[in-house]
């Protein structure tokens, strides 16, 4: 009997709670009228950033496309005249993208970054396929300083052999020193 009473009491508490809610002001934020500023690390629309010198950061190493669980990234790498590796084309199909952010984690050059821009709804699904022109921005995104080619040992306009950060002068093969 006590159990039954307890049950009834529990039920009543529940009903009372929901009933009280009827008279409270809804806490909903109404989206298009009210837009909350999202945290910087929100994972939404992807961009390709540039290094501080304005060069494209992406070296088309294929790591993002390899790690992408839905295979929405495709690209073609090539070599520029100055020796930089770059993407001749770079395509993200946002209709497939699940905004998991693995590409950003995989990117060794801080090129691919997710931003808080999430309003990418389109009527024609093909317009959700973004090319490199659409993805490339003219800033460094979250990582303002990094410049991959200043560290990599490869010869580019950023430096020849031995001119990168933390590099010794090239070995002189003919040197008389032992």
């Amino acid at each position: 009997m006590a159990e039954a009473l307890e049950a009834i009491k529990a039920l009543a508490t529940g009903f009372a709670t929901t009933f009280k809610h009827l008279f409270r002001k809804p806490i909903t934020e109404e989206y298009p009228e009210f837009k909350r500023t999202l945290p910087e690390r929100t994972r939404a629309r992807i961009i390709l950033t540039r290094d501080p010198d304005g060069g494209e950061r992406c070296v088309a190493c294929y790591l993002c496309s390899a790690v992408c669980p839905v295979s929405c990234i495709s690209m073609q790498s090539a070599e520029k005249e100055d020796g930089r590796r770059y993407a001749t084309w770079f395509r993200i199909n946002f209709a497939r993208c699940i905004y998991c952010g693995l590409c950003e984690e995989a990117c060794p050059t801080s090129a691919i970054q997710l931003t808080a821009m999430f309003e990418t709804c389109e009527r024609d699904i093909l317009t959700l396929v973004y090319e490199k022109e659409d993805l490339l921005v003219d800033h460094g995104g979250k990582d303002k300083e990094y410049n991959f080619y200043k560290y990599a040992g490869v010869v580019t306009q950023e430096g020849g052999k031995g001119e990168h950060i933390k590099e010794d002068k090239p070995v002189n093969v003919k040197s008389n020193l032992p």
Binding site: T18, F19, H21, L22, P26, I27, T28, E30
Partner: peptide, 8 residues
């Protein structure tokens, strides 16, 4: 139902 759940 929405009002019971403090929604609109």
């Amino acid at each position: 139902l929405a009002r019971l759940q403090i929604r609109y």
